[in-house]
């Protein structure tokens, strides 16, 4: 009898030890320009770069493994489904697609907001606005969060994708196609700045200074299993991200931050131009506010309308703002970031 009790105690002790994972697996839905294990734009990527996350968990002997997926969001979804990731940085559409596919995750922080979309045309193009391109051949990398952003931009201009001859092209093929005169316009993100520097193309339209509902959002999510097994570890990770986000929201760090991001392969001018006229704190804010949640709700509806997902996705219960709220409170950052309402206007 005593032996049995001892055995039970031993098993419990072992279970307690096993409770703490040996490693936390973090995945990025992006990769550096030339395949570098570096990303830019989000507090989690800068934290990775500076070794802040590894440091925060080193004391407990928890290793952090970082994976950068060239296959972007879809590859991250596959890795989550296969149980190969605990934490991921991803954009809105792939996460919605993953949720539609039945992945059980929790979004724990905003991590890179208001990503801009750009429409570039050949320098010689006579077009002055998006409307001038109606009926023309436009390239776009479909299935990425760009597609949703473009859908919203077109809708805001009383247009739809069907008003153009839309061609699925990734950025590098898109540039080749444009220089060959095969397409009349190309949608993309800040990477297109790089192309305007190379020459031959100019920006016809972009979302800088436009209504923020037209922009793209990215986030940090954890698997539901990881969140329920290790809420303390999630909190510690979010603490690091929030601290880094606060540093990145400080305008005096603007140049230093952009210089850090150039390790992803993009020249500094890319970030300088993309962030021109925007407060850092609006883009680096980790807050899960009504604006963010509504953006995902809208995106899920658009994704369904565009048949990118087959079943409606409920946004309710997907976001868990408690970690960020606690970190903000404990780090005394209540005044740093603005909470935005569903329409993208400040609520306080």
């Amino acid at each position: 009898m005593i032996r049995l009790l001892l055995l039970i105690l031993l098993v419990q002790a072992l279970a307690g030890a096993a409770d703490r994972p040996a490693e936390i697996r973090i995945g990025f839905a992006t990769i550096g320009l030339q395949g570098q294990q570096r990303a830019a734009l989000s507090p989690i990527s800068t934290a990775h770069q500076l070794g802040l996350v590894d440091k925060a968990f080193a004391a407990d002997g928890i290793r952090i493994s970082w994976t950068f997926f060239k296959g972007a969001g879809p590859a991250v979804n596959e890795a989550i489904a296969n149980g190969q990731l605990d934490v991921a940085w991803q954009g809105d559409l792939p996460a919605i697609v993953g949720r539609a596919g039945g992945l059980r995750t929790k979004i724990v922080a905003a991590c890179g907001l208001r990503g801009n979309s750009y429409l570039v045309v050949p320098v010689a193009s006579p077009a002055k606005s998006i409307t001038d391109l109606v009926g023309k051949r436009i390239g776009m990398f479909k299935g990425t969060n760009l597609q949703l952003s473009v859908g919203k931009i077109l809708a805001a201009n009383h247009l739809t994708e069907r008003d153009f001859r839309s061609i699925n092209l990734d950025t590098s093929s898109g540039l080749a196609a444009m220089l060959a005169g095969e397409i009349d316009g190309l949608w993309g993100g800040l990477e297109l700045h790089h192309l305007t520097n190379v020459g031959g193309v100019r920006i016809l339209y972009d979302t800088r200074g436009a209504d923020p509902v037209l922009t793209r959002q990215t986030h940090l999510l954890v698997t539901a299993d990881f969140a329920s097994a290790h809420p303390d570890l999630v909190q510690r990770l979010v603490d690091v991200v929030v601290r880094q986000a606060a540093w990145e929201s400080d305008e005096s760090h603007r140049e230093e931050l952009f210089r850090l991001w150039t390790e992803s392969g993009f020249p500094i001018i890319t970030f300088v131009s993309d962030f021109a006229g925007t407060a850092l704190r609006d883009r680096q804010s980790p807050l899960i506010d009504p604006f963010l949640i509504n953006q995902y709700r809208q995106s899920a509806a658009t994704a369904l309308a565009q048949k990118l997902i087959r079943t409606p996705v409920s946004i309710d219960g997907w976001f868990d703002p408690t970690y960020v709220e606690r970190a903000v409170r404990e780090q005394g950052l209540e005044k740093l970031w603005t909470t935005y309402g569903e329409d993208g206007k400040p609520v306080r």
Binding site: I167, S173, A176, A177, A180, G181, E182, I183
Partner: peptide, 12 residues
Amino acid sequence: WIPLLMMFVGIG
């Protein structure tokens, strides 16, 4: 070959 060919024959 694809990017190179694209320059000559387009994407059709």
